[in-house]
Amino acid sequence: MISAAARDALEGWLKAQKALKGASENTLDAYGRDVAGFLSFMTEHKGESQGLGALSAIEISDMRSWMAFTRGRDVGPRSLARKLSAVKSFYRWLSEREGFDATAVLSARAPKFQRKLPRPLAPDAARDMIETLEMQSENPWIAARDQAVVTLLYGCGLRISEALGLTCDVLPIGDALRIVGKGGKERVVPVIAPARDAVARYVGLCPFDLEPGKPLFRGVRGGALNPRSVQKVTEATRNQLGLPASATPHAMRHSFATHLLNAGGDLRAIQELLGHASLSTTQAYTAVDTGRLLEVYDMAHPKGRLR
């Protein structure tokens, strides 16, 4: 059981995450579960209710015990690192509010894990994916819908949640889209002609009224299109083409970034298009090797051009 004071603190922190950082409901749910699990463990570990005073007295040995317990429940290093990050964020907020030293918690080290690099498709495979998608449905409007969604992922670098979050207010789609991404951050992305044409074709065939404020992409019953539907049609397409299991909707966004950079695109510009807060995230996302990065650096840096 979690003490009333600890639960109130957890709720206060979650509200702060939503208000100050614009965290999504899914993110808040994950944060809540992670920190609540930590607080429950500490209650059992200490053998008494953990009020704010007890929480402020957590020691490094307590953190090690929690991490060992968590790993013992078949939680992988990546998931444990995520849980620890949530606990640290909660303690950083709580210590500032209550005025105690949270060094023991904040100094806990996350387990090392090998970060999986994204696996973009080759340019011809990405084109084949988009062209073959419409063959998965005999219903013309559904085929056009699926093709329009995936074309936006590859043509504009959108997350699937961003594409499916579009409303009919964007119609008719022009040369650019204003996208609200993670954390409520806005960015403007250019829309290439094939993406505009794909959406226009879908709009012309869609049997439902596409009124302002309503979802642009619809399911078979007229409600908002579910991401799982896009994942299933992509899976069927990659199986037909003999592409690997890594050829997912999200891989189309990876491919967008990688193909732009390989064609001479600027890493900073691609960072803006993807909506990444960190350039290092974009670097990993594009799956480029060090040689390619050095080539971009050599072309862009004034000293390099003096050679």
Rank of each mutant, 00 (worst) to 15 (best):
E134D: 13
R221D: 10
K185W: 05
G99V: 09
A19C: 00
R71M: 11
R7K: 11
A269D: 13
G264I: 10
V199S: 01
F217V: 00
V220S: 13
Y285I: 00
A122Q: 13
L55K: 03
F90E: 03
K214C: 05
T27L: 06
R307C: 03
Q50H: 00
R64P: 02
Q271V: 11
G37M: 05
A4C: 04
I142E: 15
L306Q: 15
P227V: 02
A144Q: 01
N226S: 14
P77D: 15
S56L: 01
V233S: 01
R221S: 09
D266H: 10
A5L: 11
A9T: 11
F90C: 00
L261C: 06
A195T: 09
T132Y: 05
N262K: 15
S95Y: 10
M299K: 15
D289R: 00
A57P: 06
G76P: 07
G12D: 04
A300C: 11
W93K: 02
A144N: 00
A110W: 08
C168R: 04
R73Q: 14
R127N: 09
R115L: 12
D101E: 14
Q147Y: 00
S24K: 04
G223I: 06
E235K: 13
D124A: 10
R228D: 10
T151L: 05
L20I: 12
A57V: 06
Y31V: 06
L133E: 02
I2H: 08
W13R: 01
L261Y: 13
Q147I: 01
W66D: 03
F208K: 00
E48V: 12
A122L: 14
W13K: 02
L166Y: 05
G12Y: 08
G265W: 09
T167I: 04
S49H: 08
R119N: 12
L117H: 08
P227H: 03
K112C: 04
G264L: 07
L39C: 05
R73M: 09
S85I: 10
Y285D: 07
L10E: 07
L106R: 08
L55P: 06
L158P: 04
G183A: 01
G219L: 03
H45P: 03
T237F: 04
F100T: 01
C156V: 14
D62M: 07
G213N: 07
K83M: 14
V203P: 03
